[in-house]
């Protein structure tokens, strides 16, 4: 079974994004970048499937400018067998990404595609579902457990009311939630080995997908600042202030 793992290069999750002073976008110059945390979990899950003998090959794919090869190398160091870089400098929407990934799926015919549930920059939470629709596959989103059994995959999903389990016919699309696994760290020997693993580059323009923007970014602003709060000395003072000043309890 082949597993395809789409990964995205994003701002490191520990870094607080800053808005540019001209309000055109978020300022990403000189900001630490990393593999999207949910994608890291996706890579880990795929590698575990390979270690368990369920998967035969793990392919990482990333769409973006040259810099995202850094994250593809990370994925290779974590255990992916080969990487595909779909190169473009364009700012793409989830729909475009899903269409490009659908082309890769057509070429590579993976039984399972594991994506992150959400990019922590756009907070879109769309690509996996869109890819599933475009490739007419079943989807198991927000997975906290994935069990492959024969030609099916059982996915336990983190939903608002608890945990839902669905059974999907393969080929299928899964998106990861945080609790699915705890990703390993890449060891130095594996980082060295990753440098020799294959990384193919394909120009996004060559895949015959319409990449014209459908959404225009009008402006980006700082969220409303909370006005400074006060420190209280005791529970008594706190309760008093909540009653008489904030008037949120009676």
């Amino acid at each position: 079974m082949k597993v395809l793992v789409p990964i995205k290069r994003v701002i490191d999750y520990n870094v607080k994004a800053r808005v540019k002073s001209d309000n055109s976008d978020v300022d990403l110059s000189n900001v630490k970048m990393a593999i999207n945390p949910f994608c890291e979990i996706a890579v880990e899950e795929a590698v575990r499937l390979k270690e368990a003998g369920t998967a035969t090959e793990v392919i990482a794919v990333s769409i973006g400018d040259k810099a995202c090869q850094e994250q593809l190398r990370t994925a290779l160091a974590l255990g992916a067998d080969k990487a595909i870089h779909i190169e473009t400098d364009a700012k793409l929407e989830s729909l475009h990404i899903a269409k490009l990934l659908a082309k890769v799926v057509e070429q590579e015919t993976p039984e399972l595609v594991i994506l992150g549930k959400q990019s922590i920059d756009s907070d879109n939470n769309q690509t996996g579902q869109m890819l599933a629709a475009l490739t007419k596959r079943a989807q198991g989103t927000f997975a906290s457990k994935v069990v492959v059994e024969g030609d099916k995959v059982q996915v336990t999903r983190e939903v608002d009311g608890g945990l839902q389990t669905v059974s999907l016919s393969l080929p299928a699309v899964v998106t990861t939630d945080l609790r699915l696994n705890e990703p390993r760290y890449a060891s130095l020997p594996n980082i060295m080995k990753a440098k020799r693993k294959p990384l193919d580059v394909i120009a996004a323009d060559s895949l015959g997908v319409d990449l014209a923007p459908r959404i225009e970014l009008v402006k980006v602003e700082e969220p409303a600042k909370r006005s400074g709060g006060v420190m209280v000395e005791s529970i008594e003072e706190l309760v008093n202030k909540l009653k008489t000043e904030a008037k949120v309890i009676s």
């Binding site: 994004a17 920059d121 907070d123 869109m130």
Partner: peptide, 30 residues
């Protein structure tokens, strides 16, 4: 169609506000 996720305000029928980057920025998108 391209989806617009988690809007927090409607400016007009085409234009919406939505938080990005864990709410550290609010984008207006058309």
């Amino acid at each position: 169609k391209s989806q617009i996720s988690e809007i927090i305000d409607v400016i007009d029928a085409d234009t919406f506000k939505r938080p990005v980057y864990a709410g550290n920025a609010i984008a207006t998108v058309k």
